[in-house]
Each structure stands twice: as structure tokens, then as C-alpha cells.
């Protein structure tokens, strides 16, 4: 009797959980797949040959190609300094490092337009050399860097802390130089953390919409990344193309998740970390 009641509660709770997840996650994704299948092969081929789609793909890869390496290198440095050094204002830097996660992407775009725009502090300097930033590729790269900046540092910091300094100190006593210690001792210890951070950085960089949208002039074919392309064609009622392009980014997201799962099994942690 008690056993039966317990199982029925269990059944009820599982059903509610699955209904919630189904309505929020699974149905929308299945609907996307259904729409693409319904659109048929022709739409996929047409989208693939669309000039604007092709340039959007290239631009997405290009912005991520610039933003991800930069954020990886500087994220590593930031993590190392924040974990290994003690200096005044360290807590402040840690708090500010988290800001890109909580500021609205549109506000990020706004800040960059103000700073690099015609009358902005840095905009005036670049204007003198005739380098356009805002409403152009450099602005979009800057926006991408801003929103994906904290990932590597955030992933590497806890691992650095856990690894401790013992091995690094041993290397130093044995006569290794600073660089040797870093490359041969520190990096191998944290390599999975770095990879994990790079993965998240890349996913965010390729998918960013709000901030990049503000910084792009939104000139079709010239300054459109894939997310911008999707929004544009969707609001123009070219839904077939929008679904096909969405599927590309959805696949990217799924690949990211699978790799993430694989990496977290490697490190045995990180699985439940939020962000």
C-alpha cells in the first residue's frame, strides 16, 4: 500500500518534470527539425548557395577565430595572476570579471558604441587613422570578445587552485625557468580546463546576437554573422532559410554539449558548473 503510493508519486513527479522539459526544450528542437524536413532538400540547397548565408558563415568563423584565441591567452594570464598573486583590488577584479555574464548584451553593445563611436574616447583616435570600428567588423569582434571573455579564466581558476604550487616550486628548485615551468608543468595540469573554457568561449562567440547586432551595421552580406542572418531572414518571412540556418547553429550547440560531456568525464568535474 505505502509502496504503491510512493511509486505513484514518483511517476507523477517524473511526468511533470518531463512535461516541463518537453514543452520548453524538446518540442521546440523537434519542431525545428520537423520544419527543416518539411521544407525539403530544395530549401537546404537554396540556403547553402545563398551568398548572404555563405558570407554569414565565414564572418561567424572569422569573429570567433579572432576572439577565441585572444580570450584564451588572456584568460589564462588572468586566471594565473588571480590565483597565484595577491594584490590590492583582487576581489574587485574577480567581481568585474563576472560582469559580462550578467550585463545585458544590448548594454554591452551600447557601451562599445559609446567608446568606439565617432565621439567616443577611443573612436576619435581610430577615426583619425580612418579605421572604422562601430558598424563594422572590428566592432563586432570587440563585442564578441567582451561577451565571451570570462569563460577560460573561470574554468581554469578552480583547477589552478586545486593543483596547488608544489609541482611548480619543485620545477623551479630543479632549475627550470619561469616559461619552462609554465609550459611543462602548469599547462599540462590544467589542459582539460583550458579546453573546456575554449569550448564554452567558442559556443558563446559563434552564437552571440544582442551585442553583435548593435555593433553591426546590419548590411546584408557584409556585416552579418549567422545569428544576425537568422533573425533577418526570419523576420522577412523567409522561414525556410531561417530554419535551415538555425539547424546549423543548433548542431553546433549539440556538438558543444557532447564535447563538454566528454571533457567533464575526463576531468571528473566541471559537469555541474553553471554558466
Amino acid at each position: 500500500m505505502v509502496k504503491g503510493k510512493k511509486i505513484s508519486i514518483e511517476f507523477l513527479l517524473i511526468t511533470i518534470a518531463l512535461l516541463f522539459l518537453g514543452a520548453m526544450i524538446y518540442m521546440p528542437l523537434l519542431a525545428l527539425l520537423a520544419e527543416v524536413v518539411q521544407g525539403g532538400w530544395d530549401v537546404i540547397v537554396k540556403t547553402w548557395h545563398d551568398r548572404n548565408f555563405q558570407s554569414a558563415v565565414l564572418l561567424t568563423i572569422l569573429t570567433a577565430g579572432i576572439a577565441v584565441p585572444l580570450n584564451t591567452i588572456f584568460g589564462l594570464c588572468t586566471a594565473w595572476v588571480l590565483v597565484r598573486q595577491r594584490f590590492p583590488g583582487r576581489a574587485l577584479v574577480m567581481t568585474i570579471l563576472d560582469l559580462p555574464f550578467s550585463i545585458s548584451p544590448v548594454v554591452v553593445g551600447l557601451m562599445l558604441v559609446l567608446l568606439y563611436g565617432k565621439h567616443g574616447w577611443l573612436g576619435q583616435i581610430f577615426d583619425r587613422f580612418n579605421i572604422p570600428i562601430v558598424f563594422n567588423l572590428p566592432g563586432m569582434v570587440l563585442a564578441t570578445i567582451f561577451v565571451s571573455l570570462p569563460f577560460v579564466a573561470r574554468e581554469v581558476m578552480p583547477i589552478l587552485e586545486e593543483v596547488g604550487t608544489a609541482e611548480e616550486e619543485a620545477a623551479k628548485t630543479l632549475g627550470a625557468s619561469g616559461w619552462q615551468t609554465f609550459w611543462l608543468v602548469t599547462v599540462p595540469n590544467i589542459k582539460w580546463g583550458i579546453l573546456y573554457g575554449v569550448l564554452l568561449t567558442n559556443a558563446r562567440a559563434m552564437g552571440e546576437f544582442g551585442a553583435v547586432s548593435v555593433l553591426s551595421g546590419n548590411i546584408l552580406g557584409k556585416t552579418q554573422t549567422l545569428p544576425l542572418f537568422i533573425e533577418e531572414v526570419y523576420t522577412n518571412y523567409q522561414t525556410g532559410e531561417a530554419f535551415a540556418a538555425s539547424l546549423v547553429l543548433a548542431m553546433l550547440a549539440l556538438v558543444t554539449l557532447v564535447l563538454k560531456e566528454w571533457l567533464s568525464q575526463k576531468t571528473g568535474s566541471g559537469h555541474r558548473r553553471i554558466h
Binding site: I25, L249, L257
Partner: peptide, 27 residues
């Protein structure tokens, strides 16, 4: 594992698929 999909899926794609499902003709 699928719980993390909303974090991994670009927001523009999320907007498009949710609109499709929740519009008057959506499932």
C-alpha cells in the same frame, strides 16, 4: 545532459524555434 541546451543554443535560434512552437499555428 540535455538540461544545458538552453545555455549552448544561440539566443537567436531559441527565439526562432520558440516562436514557431508557441505561435497561433505552432504545436
Amino acid at each position: 545532459a540535455s538540461i544545458d541546451i538552453p545555455f549552448a543554443l544561440p539566443t537567436a535560434v531559441a527565439g526562432v524555434v520558440l516562436t514557431t512552437v508557441y505561435s497561433e499555428n505552432g504545436i
